[in-house]
Amino acid sequence: MLLAAPRFALPETVGEALSALAERPDAVVVAGGTEVMPDLLWRVRTAAGFVSLRRVGALRGTSRDGDELVVGAGTPVAALVDAEAGALAAAARSLGTPLVRTEATIGGNVVSALPYRNMLPALLALDARLELTSDTGRRTVAFDGFTTAPGVTRLGEGELLTAVRLPTRPCFSDYVKIGRRNAQYVATVSAAVVSRNGAVRLAFGNAGPVPLRSDAVDVVATALLDGRAGPDDLRAAVADAVDPPEDTVASAAYRRHALGVLATRLVVRAQVDAGLGS
């Protein structure tokens, strides 16, 4: 433990972090701080203490475990900008700003669980799994379904997200997002694609209360990939599947429209990658 105070802990190991959290059950777990600090400023969150994961070395960095890439939850997003999975790299490269990416962590992005967060559609499309660690051990769950509502996850009491595991089987993957300026913006909507062995898996950000994917969309997307369906079919399928928010940034109608466009463009990129398209 580098530093401990009644309402603050700066552990160096996962074990220390878990016990620090057990001793301060009301504390907010803070990794990079890039979300927590503005939240405190804007009073959308209060904190009864901090347990900081910043100095837990074991949570930073990536490794291989069989056919999975294991990304420590405390790995800054900046470390992923050249990731092999195109979707992961693209989502990382367009997150926040260069000065934020060095601090924002993949774990923080997942646990914050807001539907517009950059990494989430990429992780969903890539079929990521999450490693959750507590005093009683470690469990691994699918990222799909981990978020249950905006800002709410299945992370248990006293449990830490310690790693994100991604399949390394070869695939084409990509990620796109749109907003109201050309850099440093929150996604109005976003989308990610994974295309592997002729099957397409799409995922969407800010298309509903949680990161969203749908078998029905993927069936049409796969059909579009091999020419059995047209772009309009995919757009219609996406429009049916999504339930985007209406707010002062954009209307739900625009978001629904744009999600269809993004889906189609991503499948076309997968087509080109597969040598199927022009």
Partner: peptide, 14 residues
């Protein structure tokens, strides 16, 4: 510079 910038949603053809 393409519209949409870092979000990479546009391509020259669009």
């Amino acid at each position: 510079k393409l519209p949409g910038g870092v979000g990479r949603a546009s391509s020259p053809g669009s």
